[in-house]
Design a protein around this nucleic acid. Structure first.
Lengths: 336, 336
DNA sequence: TTGTAAGCGTTATCAT
DNA sequence: ATGATAACGCTTACAA
């Protein structure tokens, strides 16, 4: 049998409300009685029934998080950042993964909503194009933060990495190292991050006075094989570039493996830069130059934002998009 | 304002209890009224208050998970497995990371307990030596499953990979490839997984009639640098082995980087096998032979176990340890 | 400063 | 097959 505030009250011959207030450090209760109450609560082994309190107050002190895949370095870094801040502020975090499936994303959102999370942080799945499941939150002013893969269709605070800037830097770096014919392995242009990266790539070419050659731009699903296929195509057409900027490290890896296989010298003949700083990119031979996104910081920021919204209760309609700086990490795949 | 079962009841001129029963598909309610009720519930936009139900029934339909670090491939695979099964069974999963800190692990366990999770799945942190925080669960017969890093000190179902067998296979493989002087980079012997791996290593040596040379066994914290330092020591003492079995891929990676640096031919001069099949191990040059642990399956199994315990309510005192098979993946770091 | 009492939405017990 | 009612443990007006 669990001890309740009533048991403590009875023990001390006072009322349950006094006990409740004392345990919540309500300043209206006198120092002495509060101490007395806390002491006996401790002695009796009292454990507050969080469920009852949540039910009563309609606050769960829980933040929901939905990511496409936990098992990816960037996302798990973000989660760590969220956890860090949430934990310090007394919030519990519930993490789920959508596996990039809209239905699962929607189902999870509904479950989190039903479980009355105080706020939601999410990165959209690859296929997500309808946002009904998020209306659940926005309609009822439940704080919602989008990060990384975001959408214009939803009014919410958004946290993104500087994809454009990162891509721009990466491309500029390749140009400065002498590249003139640069290919780009990009993702679906319906997804903000890949769109921005491609735009950054093109902007850097333009600013350097290079013209963009559409036959050097590939848009696929960003698997290792997508990178390989793109290069195979280029080679078949006798259009091998002198550099490739990939919108993720996975395609860059594919390309490196393929080019090594066919005996092309990296980075001398073809220089390569990836994106995301996946753990493997440092240890491949040659190590992959890449763009580092501040995952942990993004998570921290997201958690701070959602918590401040939860606490202020101000239905903040002034939604902003926070862009966090990315960083070019130069490694052997592009070092001349 | 949220619709409650009372609103539905009023609308249909029936009682709230009937509504409750109908929505829960209680067979005692007639087919016709149940349909009527579900229809109006739908129309009125009714959403069950999970909090109220949890409060009332003392069941949260939530499983707590604690891992040392989400951001590690093995653990995130396990989490995916847990999620998969939990999701299919209508359970919500709350994931937290202990960062290998006892205090955080204890704090999280307390929070999960206070939040009345129906069951807990956890992998102990590196430093965890006291288990008071788990007594919270075992004392009250709340289902608890330990996996990977487990302890004899707690009575619970346990799920581990076949660390001994994996290490045995790895070592045997090295021997079959001609190695006679095999070093071992192991972890703290207070932790079951590292202990088993070391034992598997020694057993394989014994079975092959090789004697174990203690000066070839190193026990550190399993960082990349630990591997490097071990090999530096061996080299300084002119005791470079012809093979190394590492209890994780991280140390194997360190060793590979170091040996390449000093111009030793891999695997010809020194063959290497790691453990865990980290994503990077496939793409390093040379690719790292390693032992694959069935993370996803372990997670599924853990979730199945905890859910069946939750549902049966049988205070199952017959605790068993389930060992799941590991698999040797032979790559270039050991292929002669 | 403390007490009284209502109520959160659901489920379970006991009637009918 | 359905209804009335109490109860879960806590918080919070309102009262004293």
């Amino acid at each position: 049998m669990e001890i309740t505030i009533h048991d403590i009250a009875k023990q001390l011959n006072i009322s349950a409300s006094t006990v409740s207030r004392a345990l919540k450090n309500n300043p209206i209760i006198s120092e002495s009685t509060r101490k007395r109450i806390k002491k006996t609560a401790e002695e009796m082994g009292y454990r507050p029934n969080v469920l009852a309190a949540s039910f009563r107050t309609k606050k769960t002190n829980t933040i929901g998080v939905i990511v496409p895949l936990i098992n990816r370095h960037f996302f798990s870094s973000v989660i760590s950042g969220i956890e860090d801040i949430a934990y310090k502020n007394g919030f519990t975090v519930t993490i789920s993964q959508s596996n990039d499936k809209v239905e699962k994303e929607a189902k999870i959102a509904q479950t989190l909503f039903a479980n009355r999370v105080d706020g939601l942080i999410l990165s959209l799945g690859m296929e997500t194009k309808s946002f009904e499941h998020l209306k659940l939150f926005t309609d009822r002013k439940i704080p919602l933060i989008l990060f990384d893969r975001v959408t214009d269709k939803i009014d919410a605070h958004k946290i993104i990495a500087d994809d454009f800037g990162g891509a721009y830097q990466a491309t500029k770096h390749l140009i400065e190292n002498g590249a003139r014919k640069i290919a780009h392995i990009g993702g679906p242009q319906t997804i903000n991050i890949y769109k921005s990266r491609q735009e950054g790539f093109i902007a850097a070419l333009n600013d350097a006075g290079l013209k963009t050659d559409k036959s050097l731009i590939f848009n696929g699903t960003m698997t290792r094989n997508d990178g390989i296929e793109a290069l195979k195509t280029l080679r078949k057409n006798n259009k091998l570039p002198d550099a490739v900027f990939c919108a993720n490290d996975t395609t860059a890896l594919g390309i490196i493996i393929y080019l090594k296989e066919i005996g092309i010298k990296l980075p001398d003949e073809i220089a390569i830069v990836g994106f995301s700083n996946e753990p493997f990119s440092e240890v491949v031979t040659p190590s992959i130059s890449t763009i580092k996104q501040p995952g942990f910081l993004m998570g921290q920021k997201a958690a701070e934002l959602v918590i401040s919204q939860i606490n202020n209760k101000i239905s903040d309609t002034n939604f902003k998009t926070i862009t966090m700086p990315t960083q070019l990490i130069i490694r052997n795949s592009s070092k001349k």
